[in-house]
Design a protein around this nucleic acid. Structure first.
Lengths: 201, 201
DNA sequence: CTCCGTTTCTGAACAGCGTTCATTTTTTTC
DNA sequence: GAAAAAAATGAACGCTGTTCAGAAACGGAG
């Protein structure tokens, strides 16, 4: 009977992911220690490596959860908007809000690097790709029908642009933008973008 | 006579920065080891800490040099362009080219994090800010004169957007964009942006 | 209930890291 | 040239992620 055994394994996995998530939330990805996680999860140090390949693997699973939450937030934001322009704005607003409210978890999505030579697993790349998908429909409604073929690169570019604005501001690398100014500037940016898209056909 | 002594100090500093630069270039910021750097520079492990406070300090100086190079590249790109629209495109192209050709050094500019609680020194923040300055003039030429007051936030937003597109593509986090497609999409993005800016006054 | 093969869990041990500092070596001064 | 001051050294420290020999818990047979 490996049923009980599997259940214990899954429980341990869940406790480790949740402990790692809490640590990232409070100390950031850089403050993550295997010893802290296992202490919080109530298991031995070595137990971590019976369930995950290494810390990277664990972080990937934390990020997986974060992406699911972020995806849900974006979905409801898009669902509540009226036109394509409003949808794009709502998505940008929701992305900014999520990043602000879950700063460390969101930062971990993009700060994390695999060990040298190890590629990010396919299933996790696919989870990232979902973020872009929400942009495709409003963009299709905005652009000329003939352009609908290569809409994915454009959606990715626009996501990246919005992400860049949010990322550089929240990381306070340059002189930081105060949050209300940031939101105003971000929405203005989307406005300009939409104006540009409309005026090109 | 502390003149000779100072000269030796400066020489050691230069050798360490150059060795660290080479290591980042070949192995990335994550592959940087104090022992490797000091071995390459031909000095003892402890010598590093007689000239720099810690590894972060050394990385800051490497990044300082990279920013100077990048700044020079952007300056000449902007100087060779005709109108404001062409200037913006030239800047985007130059930024992408620099990032592609100096991937690891460029990535180190944004990957690097100070130790927790330690802020990035003011002088280094100022060096980052220079990047944005090149955008202000062409944006001023494009926009209505009345808007010239709060042009800096807009310049920062546009820089961040371009940076985001380049960053997410080069880091291959999502399914990677092939380089020629990336350049096409980036320039198209600038086109849309300029169209939007023009159509708004 | 008892036994024993199997599986699971454990934490001491290991290699590697950034950083320090007592010691040695070099330089400067008289 | 000798004494004082300064600079350079690398072994040692504390911390890291990861491993693995051994301990503990489990599960079915007698």
């Amino acid at each position: 009977m490996t049923q009980k055994s599997d259940a214990r394994r899954e429980d341990l996995k869940a406790r480790l992911v949740s402990a790692a998530r809490a640590r990232i939330q409070s100390s950031g990805l850089g403050g993550l220690r295997a010893r802290d996680i296992t202490a919080d999860a109530g298991c031995a140090l070595g137990a971590l490596y019976t369930v995950f390949a290494d810390l990277d693997d664990l972080v990937l699973h934390v990020n997986s959860g974060t992406l699911a939450e972020l995806g849900a937030v974006l979905r409801t934001a898009a669902a509540g908007a009226l036109g394509p322009e409003e949808t794009l704005k709502a998505l940008a607003r929701a992305y900014l809000a999520f990043a602000s409210e879950n700063r460390m978890l969101w930062a971990a999505l993009f700060e994390h690097r695999m060990a040298p030579g190890v590629p990010v697993p396919e299933w996790h790349l696919a989870e990232h790709a979902v973020l872009i998908q929400y942009l495709v429909e409003p963009l299709a409604l905005l652009g000329a029908p003939s352009q609908n073929e290569d809409l994915l690169p454009r959606a990715r570019a626009i996501f990246s642009a919005v992400h860049g604005i949010v990322a550089i501001s929240l990381e306070a690398r340059f002189i930081g933008l105060a949050p209300p100014v940031l939101e105003r500037e971000l929405l203005n940016f989307v406005d300009v973008l939409v104006s540009g898209l409309k005026s090109r056909h």
